[in-house]
């Protein structure tokens, strides 16, 4: 059912990965950085799904990866809520002290 050259899926995965790295490095808002991490994880999932042609192990691995990502985002947001209550800012430049004194 595929007439497209399969390397285009790999190129898309590379594009997602490098945009994810760009977003993680250059943006200062914590949520923006989490969005960049999501892009990186999705590029890996796309690669796994592309190579899972003769058996289902790639898909299963990608499902486990999605579940772990959801856990990580939930805990990251809980930590962010706590940090915001103390520092009243979600800008990474201003969160540069270990304690609030």
């Amino acid at each position: 059912m595929i007439e497209l050259d399969p390397t285009y899926y790999l190129y898309l995965s590379a594009l997602l990965f490098s945009s994810g790295i760009f977003v993680v490095i250059s943006k200062r808002n914590v949520i923006f950085v989490l969005i960049g991490i999501e892009l990186i994880l999705n590029s890996a999932n796309l690669l796994l799904a592309t190579f899972s042609r003769t058996d289902l192990n790639g898909q299963i691995f990608a499902i486990f990866s999605i579940v772990l990502t959801v856990c990580e985002v939930a805990i990251a947001l809980a930590i962010l809520l706590n940090v915001y209550r103390k520092y009243h800012s979600s800008n990474l430049d201003e969160l540069n002290e270990l304690s609030n004194e």
Binding site: M1, I2, Y9, V30, I31, L34, I35, E38, N42, N45, A49, T50, S52, R53, G58, Q59, A62, I63, I66, V67, T69, V70, V73, A74, L77, L80, L81, Y84, S90
Partner: peptide, 29 residues
Amino acid sequence: LNAELLAIVQILLYAGGVVILLVFGVMMT
């Protein structure tokens, strides 16, 4: 790519879960 269950899980968990978490995170901070 003929990965049906992965597509369903992606919509259910990622688009229906993670994005909502992120938007709530933005609204509360």
